[in-house]
Design a protein around this nucleic acid. Structure first.
Lengths: 211, 211
DNA sequence: TACTAATAACTGACCAGGCAGTCAATAAGG
DNA sequence: CCTTATTGACTGCCTGGTCAGTTATTAGTA
């Protein structure tokens, strides 16, 4: 504390601190408008130091997006467990979790925004994200739907081919909040409940249906 | 044609041509990375001419977004007509139309991308878009749902409070295509059919339900 | 413990290139 | 030949990237 503001050598912590600061600036201004001097200032260092750890602005951006994506990738593992019990219960807890991750967590929203905004400059980034994050997530959802159909709980439906349809309201809430800000955010609990209600009606077998 | 490449005076057409070119460039690169020289080149003029019609780069951007939004606003009028017949039929034709507008039309997607990418730089733009375009659209959808409930076709559901839930799959398809490109686009007909199917199940009254 | 030397993390002043915005000169068109 | 839409060369600022120099830190020495 006494040395706050003084110059310090912190080889281990620097990269993380820089990425953290870079994330805030990139999220605020986008790739092109972000100034490395601002990133440095936010990290409490100078621009030169950034170049000790990252070869260029582009590399810093890539490192930032990848770093911020790590939690999502780690969370995916939990979804690959063998399903048990009612499929609808799985979906309920799954989506409660996903809302927490994507809609409530500002970082996840900003990452999405950055990816959308910079696809044309970094095409590989979007493709990588599709293959490593979104693809598996869609697949996991599809597995739950299949499981529900197999155990007779769900009727066959388009949700098997397009699990996107189930996930869509999450995306909607996410983009909504990211466009219009926290002030106009949709009421989380009511929205989630509504989402699950409509989903359930759409998926489950009717009384006299099938089998 | 004979004078192609020569300097020409075209006071009337210029603004439109410039906005058209600006749209392409802004869509490709975002606000900050777009060069006015490129916009001018695309419009077949020089940068100086742009400044005859628009006071600054920011103004050009604003004008571009507003101009590109005009069709959406005009289309809104059609949705305010008094509903007739089965509510589900209205929703079917409505969404078929919306898919055409938002998912198939590249321009609509790019506008959405631009708005999302540049909210922090142009906060007024998002707010205006919410009030003038999105708000009325949500309201129109809500009216149809209410109509369906009133005539006993639909059960009361969260779709009345959150028409967003119905619209979400459109948003999903839109962002999906804009992130991953036309190659990975979801099959339009099948996706739309699935969307409508799940929606119908979610909205309509069950056999022994209510009333 | 105190002093010195060696190491390398960090700085900040510095380019070089790029781009928004300007304006005197030019030429299209009536 | 007069008006004015258009040009294109110009300016000044900004910012990514560099690098010689500075200083925190550690290892070695007495």
């Amino acid at each position: 504390m006494a040395s706050a503001g003084r110059r310090q050598r912190r080889k281990e912590e620097r990269p993380g601190e820089i990425v953290e600061a870079a994330f805030e600036e990139f999220a605020r201004s986008g790739f092109a408008a972000t100034k490395l001097d601002d990133v440095a200032a936010r990290a409490g260092i100078t621009k030169g130091t950034i170049y000790l750890y990252f070869p260029s602005k582009e590399d810093l951006f890539l490192a930032t997006v990848r770093e911020m994506n790590r939690p999502s990738q780690e969370n995916l593992a939990a979804l690959t467990a063998a399903p048990q019990g009612p499929a609808m219960a799985i979906l309920r807890s799954h989506f409660a979790f996903v809302y927490e991750q994507m809609v409530e967590d500002r970082r996840a929203r900003e990452i999405l925004r950055m990816l959308m905004a910079e696809v044309s400059r970094f095409p590989d980034l979007a493709e990588r994200w599709r293959v490593e994050v979104i693809g598996p997530a869609v697949e996991a959802l599809r597995r739950v739907v299949r499981y529900g159909i197999e155990r007779g709980e769900f009727r066959p439906s388009a949700a098997e081919e397009f699990p996107h349809l189930l996930f869509a309201p999450v995306m909607m809430a996410c983009t909504w909040r990211m466009m219009f800000g926290d002030d106009h955010a949709l009421d989380r609990a009511a929205y989630l409940a509504g989402h699950l209600d409509l989903m359930e009606r759409g998926l489950v077998r009717g009384p006299g249906e099938g089998e």
